[in-house]
Simulated assay, not measured.
Amino acid sequence: MAPIPKPPADPQDNPDAYVGLDADGAERLARERGWSTVRSLPPGAIITMEYRVGRLNFEVKDGQVTRSWKG
Protein backbone atom coordinates (compact mmCIF):
# COMPACT_ATOMS: atom_id res chain seq x y z
CA MET A 1 0.00 0.00 0.00
CA ALA A 2 1.31 3.45 -0.91
CA PRO A 3 1.99 5.93 1.90
CA ILE A 4 -0.54 8.67 2.48
CA PRO A 5 0.91 11.90 1.07
CA LYS A 6 1.53 14.70 3.53
CA PRO A 7 0.77 18.16 2.13
CA PRO A 8 3.54 20.74 2.40
CA ALA A 9 3.39 23.22 5.24
CA ASP A 10 4.15 26.92 5.44
CA PRO A 11 7.55 27.75 6.95
CA GLN A 12 7.50 28.59 10.64
CA ASP A 13 7.99 32.29 10.01
CA ASN A 14 6.18 35.46 11.06
CA PRO A 15 5.08 37.53 8.05
CA ASP A 16 5.12 40.70 10.17
CA ALA A 17 8.93 40.39 10.39
CA TYR A 18 9.21 41.55 6.75
CA VAL A 19 7.34 44.84 7.17
CA GLY A 20 9.74 47.76 6.84
CA LEU A 21 12.38 45.84 4.85
CA ASP A 22 13.36 46.73 1.31
CA ALA A 23 11.46 44.51 -1.14
CA ASP A 24 14.48 42.80 -2.73
CA GLY A 25 16.07 41.97 0.61
CA ALA A 26 12.75 40.75 2.01
CA GLU A 27 12.25 38.41 -0.95
CA ARG A 28 15.77 36.94 -0.57
CA LEU A 29 15.21 36.43 3.16
CA ALA A 30 11.79 34.81 2.61
CA ARG A 31 13.25 32.32 0.12
CA GLU A 32 16.12 31.52 2.52
CA ARG A 33 13.52 30.82 5.22
CA GLY A 34 11.70 28.32 3.00
CA TRP A 35 8.93 30.19 1.19
CA SER A 36 8.53 28.59 -2.24
CA THR A 37 6.67 31.56 -3.74
CA VAL A 38 7.04 35.23 -2.88
CA ARG A 39 4.61 37.66 -4.51
CA SER A 40 5.18 41.44 -4.47
CA LEU A 41 2.13 43.61 -5.10
CA PRO A 42 1.51 47.34 -5.30
CA PRO A 43 -0.91 48.88 -2.77
CA GLY A 44 -4.53 48.23 -3.69
CA ALA A 45 -3.74 45.56 -6.29
CA ILE A 46 -6.61 43.32 -7.30
CA ILE A 47 -5.59 39.74 -6.56
CA THR A 48 -7.12 36.30 -6.39
CA MET A 49 -7.93 35.14 -2.88
CA GLU A 50 -7.12 31.44 -3.10
CA TYR A 51 -4.82 30.22 -0.35
CA ARG A 52 -1.57 28.70 -1.59
CA VAL A 53 0.62 26.85 0.88
CA GLY A 54 4.19 28.12 0.80
CA ARG A 55 3.35 31.54 -0.67
CA LEU A 56 4.22 34.80 1.06
CA ASN A 57 2.65 38.02 -0.20
CA PHE A 58 4.19 41.47 0.12
CA GLU A 59 2.51 44.79 -0.43
CA VAL A 60 5.30 47.07 -1.63
CA LYS A 61 5.29 50.85 -1.76
CA ASP A 62 8.36 52.87 -2.83
CA GLY A 63 10.52 49.72 -2.69
CA GLN A 64 9.60 48.92 0.92
CA VAL A 65 7.35 46.16 2.30
CA THR A 66 4.35 47.79 3.98
CA ARG A 67 2.31 44.63 4.59
CA SER A 68 2.98 40.89 4.51
CA TRP A 69 0.69 37.84 4.73
CA LYS A 70 0.63 34.11 4.04
CA GLY A 71 -1.14 32.45 1.17
Results as ranks from 00 to 15, higher is better:
D13P: 03
R28G: 05
G25K: 07
G54A: 06
V60I: 01
W35F: 09
T37H: 08
V53Q: 13
G34C: 07
L21Y: 12
R28Q: 15
Y51L: 06
G54P: 04
A23S: 15
A17G: 06
G71R: 08
R31D: 12
W69I: 07
V38K: 13
R39T: 04
R28C: 01
T66Y: 07
A9T: 08
V53R: 12
R52W: 04
G63I: 00
A2N: 05
Y18R: 07
G44R: 08
W35A: 07
R52K: 15
A30W: 06
S40P: 01
S40V: 00
F58E: 13
G63C: 07
R28Y: 06
T48S: 05
R33V: 01
P11E: 05
I4H: 03
D16A: 15
A30S: 05
P7D: 02
D62N: 09
L56K: 08
A9Y: 00
Y51V: 13
D22G: 09
N14F: 05
P8F: 00
G44A: 02
T66W: 05
M49T: 04
E32I: 10
D24A: 15
A45Q: 09
D16R: 12
D10N: 14
G20N: 10
P8N: 02
A45I: 00
Q64W: 08
G63H: 11
G44T: 02
D10M: 07
A26I: 01
P43K: 09
E32Q: 15
P43S: 08
P11Y: 03
V53D: 10
V19F: 11
G44H: 06
A9S: 08
V38F: 13
S36P: 03
R67D: 12
S68I: 01
K6W: 00
M1R: 04
G34Q: 03
D22Y: 12
E50G: 09
D16I: 04
L56D: 07
R39P: 00
Y18Q: 07
R28E: 13
P42M: 10
D13M: 08
K70S: 13
V65D: 03
R33K: 13
D10E: 11
Y18D: 05
A2K: 01
G71N: 12
S40E: 13
W35I: 07
D22I: 06
K61F: 15
D16V: 03
N57T: 01
R31L: 03
A23M: 09
T37N: 12
E50V: 02
T48Y: 10
V60K: 04
E32R: 15
R33E: 10
E50D: 14
S36L: 07
N14P: 03
I47H: 14
K61H: 13
E27R: 14
K61W: 13
Q64C: 11
V65H: 06
K61C: 07
I46M: 01
L41A: 04
P15V: 02
A30R: 02
